[in-house]
């Protein structure tokens, strides 16, 4: 009889401890979903919620302060997202706060971030609508990437056509690089220029010894020396 009572007590302890663990677990999961804390609800209208789901986190300054309570499509371009947020952070969310949808890391789940707003404004009320900004969607990024890659293809096509022209010696640059007769002409021209410059130097030397110009040149030299003296 005594043994049976002992067994029943052990059974009672076993069941009680099991239920306490279960209740503690349920409480911890529930508290994460704000089931047991004092909360208030606000909403935001989005054009595209980008895969946000009920139960995703709502963050304010990087802290989890609530969850997405409900998502409802109200028009063909408008989705209403209700947020359940802890009452204790209400004072930090102002009327001009903004909500935007982001994701938790590259692979993480979606979440809603609230940007607090200006400090002088009134605090948001239960049931208020919050301003929203369009989320940066991966689709948009991909679309832009696609446009960029199409542009890159066009550019490389053009570049390749230009290179082809240069290689085949078409156009001014092609002539410079590829046309050997042009190079010879330039070479000849340079020889002529060199010869011309030599002749010109001789002419100038002769002119400097000419009595008609000697006075003028001396005057120039004096002015130059004077300018040097002033600078020192």
């Amino acid at each position: 009889m005594k043994k049976e009572t002992g067994n029943k007590m052990r059974l009672g302890i076993f069941i009680s401890v099991g239920l306490i663990i279960l209740i503690a677990g349920i409480y911890l999961i529930g508290s994460k979903q704000q089931l047991f804390s004092n909360t208030f609800r606000i909403s935001g209208i989005f054009k595209d919620i980008n895969g946000l789901q009920i139960g995703n986190n709502v963050r304010l300054s990087g802290i989890n302060v609530g969850v997405i309570g409900n998502i409802e499509i109200i028009a063909d371009t408008a989705v209403r997202v209700d947020m359940v947020i802890e009452e204790k952070v209400r004072k930090f969310i102002k009327k001009d706060s903004q909500a935007n949808i982001g994701s938790d890391g590259l692979m993480g789940s979606k979440m809603l971030t609230i940007i607090p707003g200006t400090s002088g404004k009134k605090v948001i009320q239960d049931g208020d609508f919050i301003e929203t900004t369009a989320p940066v969607s991966i689709d948009n990024i991909l679309l832009n990437l696609e446009i960029a890659s199409i542009n890159a293809i066009d550019i490389t096509d053009d570049l390749s056509a230009i290179m082809l022209n240069i290689r085949s010696g078409k156009g001014a640059i092609g002539k410079i690089f590829m046309d050997s007769t042009f190079a010879k002409t330039v070479d000849d021209a340079m020889v002529n220029v060199k010869e011309g410059a030599g002749g010109f130097k001789q002419n100038m030397d002769a002119a400097s010894h000419n009595f008609l110009l000697r006075g003028f040149l001396k005057k120039k030299e004096r002015e130059k020396k004077k300018a040097m003296g002033n600078r020192q």
Binding site: E4, N7, K8, R10, L11, F14, I15
Partner: peptide, 13 residues
């Protein structure tokens, strides 16, 4: 039932 619960539950713990 209590006896069986003891055997199944507590004793298997």
């Amino acid at each position: 039932f209590a006896k069986q619960s003891f055997i199944v539950g507590y004793k298997s713990l």
